[in-house]
Design a protein around this nucleic acid. Structure first.
Lengths: 260, 260
DNA sequence: CGCACGGTTGACACGACTCAATTGCTGTGG
DNA sequence: CCACAGCAATTGAGTCGTGTCAACCGTGCG
């Protein structure tokens, strides 16, 4: 991957939910960061930490993992800042853990505070980031609460694909899955054995393949249907009717002028 | 209840998570509001709404209820502002619904924006409000994901008690429960029939009574133990070791006399 | 007074869990 | 280069929690 340009990951992510000006992008280029590589199932932040910087995920996946039985409450993809709220209060309620190898850029809290003061636009974009984070949590509660395990797994995969595509990844509906089936099970609140059977069923239904640490969606429409996936809650700006066939080459703001 | 002092409810809530100065409280007194009464299972906000004001709950309970099977993703008590995030983006992903009768004060977005500009302290307090909202969502995911139904119900009740007490209500561990057992079931993602059996079990275990629309906790310690309840995630300032035996002696607005 | 709704109870079905054993893969050291 | 360790994936069998269905009761309200 393109090391050394951590800020572009953040820019991509912010652009996916808000329109940024040239000046905003210029501000982002000044982002100071310390880049760190983590291996599988590492703890990036412990519950007891009181960080003074945020984690910008550059590559791989992170999740909040609970102390107790290891329930995963949220998954993050490159461009996300899982702990952005620590800029306000550094108290953590879970461990920030890798799912597979991951690359993280640590960015001082003060940087986010500064750009918020300098650009109301960036301030709003960062607020939107936390709002969509909360929206995803609510969506996940709906999932755990009201859908059966096949739907849950399918929905999680749909969400990951949509979010990867929003930052320019997985355009061909293939993406690395360095996490284990047990990880997926923890996220979906099912047992590892059952998760395995669900995945087999998804394979049998010909909607995806999962081999050599890579997932390939073979029938996106069918998967979305199985999952009852309606990506509105992700707050992305340019979802096409066909659900994420976006081309990021074109100017970042086609229409999406709806008041937000 | 003391009508006409909607702002005191907000002041109580903000005080429970942040320290406010005299000036901050003075600013809050200027809060404009339109007070509205709702009956049971009313929709305060529809998914399709694009509100330009927030809902400050004064009395009763509200919840976000999903379109589909009516899964409840979050419950609110007096002093809460369930839709505070709409000040940034008015898009909703669920219906804001009453659980029993409720009284709501509608407060223009612009008021929150103004006080955020005038007082960094209030700005922070409002940010903390959304952060704890998200923390509760994560906690609820843990609940749905990793605990059995008895624990889930017990945990929800513990949380409600703790949050009521944080704003000066339910000090004697008794509080109105105008919601139905089905509502509780929707929140805990179990069937109404099963919810009923769980409640009976809680009664049998002598930890609470639930009659004539009132819940009375008879053994708070035992209930907390059953629930695995650790209230840190609520972000409250003054939790005593014994879990919420707080005395609000220093209360800046000691009004809130009557039951909610 | 009676209807409607919330609460209660029992019987039965099924999805998901656990336990346990086996296979397959990957990396590593002899 | 192979053997082995260790982990992930896979499979089967039996169990249990929770859901569904259906009936019944109690009570508040029109």
């Amino acid at each position: 991957m393109q090391q050394g340009f951590a800020f572009t990951k953040l820019a991509d992510r912010l652009t996916s939910i808000a329109e940024l000006s040239e000046e905003d992008l210029e501000l982002l280029t000044r982002m100071p960061s310390t880049i760190t590589h983590f291996s599988s199932h590492d703890q990036v932040l412990r519950k007891s930490d009181q960080p003074s910087r945020c984690c910008l995920l550059l590559q791989g996946y992170l999740c909040w993992k609970d102390d107790g039985d290891g329930q995963i409450s949220s998954i993050y993809v490159p461009g996300d800042v899982p702990d952005s709220y620590t800029t306000v209060s550094p108290r953590l309620t879970a461990h920030l853990t890798t799912l597979g190898q991951a690359v993280v850029a640590f960015v001082p809290h003060v940087f986010f505070r500064e750009i918020s003061l300098l650009s109301p636009n960036l301030h709003r974009a960062l607020q939107l980031l936390s709002i969509t984070d909360a929206a995803r949590l609510r969506s996940w509660i709906i999932n755990l609460g009201s859908r059966d395990s096949l739907t849950r797994v399918a929905h999680l995969i749909c969400e990951i694909v949509a979010r990867l595509q929003a930052v320019g990844l997985a355009r061909d509906y293939r993406f690395p899955s360095p996490f284990t089936q047990s990880d997926l099970a923890s996220a979906c609140a099912i047992s590892a054995v059952h998760a395995n059977r669900i995945i087999q069923e998804l394979r049998r239904k010909q909607v995806l393949s999962w081999q050599s640490r890579t997932i390939a969606i073979t029938d996106w429409e069918a998967l979305c249907r199985l999952a009852c996936f309606e990506p509105d809650y992700l707050g992305l700006r340019d979802i096409t009717p066909a659900v994420c066939h976006r081309s990021r080459a074109t100017a970042p703001s086609a229409a999406s002028e709806l008041s937000m």
